[in-house]
């Protein structure tokens, strides 16, 4: 088991390095840097001015060097600029002083500066993650119990009317992407169009003070899309368990049907959905980006869109590190959890 986790961790770190390098490479392509220089400096810069602007700020170094500096394995640049100013990476492009650190990268806990928000990336990412965490918490509270109940009810008696109706419901919910259900829900429940204006169509106010009124629509929009998928997985695993030998034995012994479902079947049927719920996190991330944009809730997904559309290199890297980390950790948890929950699987 220990070796298994170690190997998985090794693959995880390799994946994270590759992914951040790809993001680094794509954001540091010259047209992107040119756009960055023009938005940060001014839009009428000539090509030479762009060159010197980028050179003074360390952007024209070779890619592996820049990546090493960002990572914190190479010393941060100190560049004497053509305009007479000396800029050091570790002083946020200020003049270097006595106690300027030599290394300042992710490994040293320095996430860099956002060029759009003019703030520390770590600061931005942590506050935004907190907001998204609040959203995700409520999504989970709605989605997981809902999906499990639907799945168990449908899988209890395969092929019954209940099964067929609930399965159709879950197909409908998986077929509705967030930007469709969000738009429909807002149009129905937040505009006077249908006379059912019960909720607020934006969640901006929910950042400080989340109420049922302003938080229900975003939460339900994300939850609906994931719910159908988890419910279908739960149903599949439940139907499989219900045909197992020990369930037949219990039935022949005369155990009542509710007792069979709750005491015998449920525990084993919930192993597979656990994995699925864990693997849903990356998808939820997707939904979060869409829903936060749609409802103007300034969380992590909203930050991703802002960073990506403005080519805010360090913020984008910070965001991708966090999201890749979330994806890989949930994969690891789902693998380990599966082994713990399912005594039939042993990893030697």
């Amino acid at each position: 088991m220990g070796l298994f986790i170690l190997r998985r961790l090794g693959v995880m770190i390799l994946t994270a390095l590759c992914l951040t390098f790809i993001v680094f490479w794509l954001t540091n392509l010259y047209p992107n840097l040119e756009k960055l220089a023009k938005t940060q400096g001014n839009f009428r810069m000539s090509d030479e001015q762009v060159q010197t602007y980028l050179g003074n700020r360390g952007y024209t170094q070779s890619l592996p060097v820049k990546y090493g500096q960002w990572l914190g394995v190479l010393p941060g640049y100190v560049i004497e600029g053509t305009d007479g100013e000396t800029r050091a990476r570790c002083e946020a492009n200020g003049a270097p002083t006595e106690d300027t650190a030599t290394f300042c990268g992710i490994l040293q806990g320095e996430w860099g500066q956002s060029t759009v928000f003019k703030d520390d990336v770590s600061e931005i990412v942590s506050t935004r993650l907190g907001l998204t965490g609040k959203l995700m918490f409520w999504v989970m509270m709605v989605m997981v119990p809902g999906a499990l109940i639907i799945g168990v009810l449908a899988g209890m008696r395969e092929g019954s009317r209940t099964d067929r109706s609930l399965s159709t419901v879950s197909i409908v919910s998986t077929a509705t992407p967030e930007y469709v259900s969000g738009v429909i829900l807002i149009a129905v429940f937040a505009t006077p169009l249908f006379g059912m204006q019960y909720f607020k169509g934006t969640a901006t106010s929910a950042m400080d003070d989340a109420t049922f009124n302003n938080f229900f629509l975003p939460v339900i929009t994300i939850a609906l899309y994931g719910m159908g998928y988890i419910a279908r997985m739960t149903r599949a695993s439940m139907t499989e368990v219900m045909t197992a030998q020990y369930i037949r034995t219990a039935r022949l012994k005369g155990v009542s049907f509710p007792n069979i479902v709750i005491k015998h079947a449920l525990r084993n049927a919930l192993i597979a959905p656990f994995t699925v719920i864990m693997l849903q996190f990356p998808w939820l991330l997707n939904g979060v980006v869409i829903v936060e944009t749609l409802f103007n809730y300034k969380g992590f997904g909203w930050t991703l869109v802002q960073a990506a559309s403005n080519n805010d290199i360090e913020l984008l890297l910070g965001v991708s590190v966090v999201s890749v980390f979330v994806v890989l950790v949930t994969q690891l948890i789902s693998d380990i959890g599966y082994v713990f929950l399912n005594p039939r699987i042993r990893i030697s």
Partner: peptide, 9 residues
């Protein structure tokens, strides 16, 4: 492992 939207952007 890439978030799809980041990749698109």
């Amino acid at each position: 492992a890439f978030p799809v939207i980041l990749l698109f952007y």
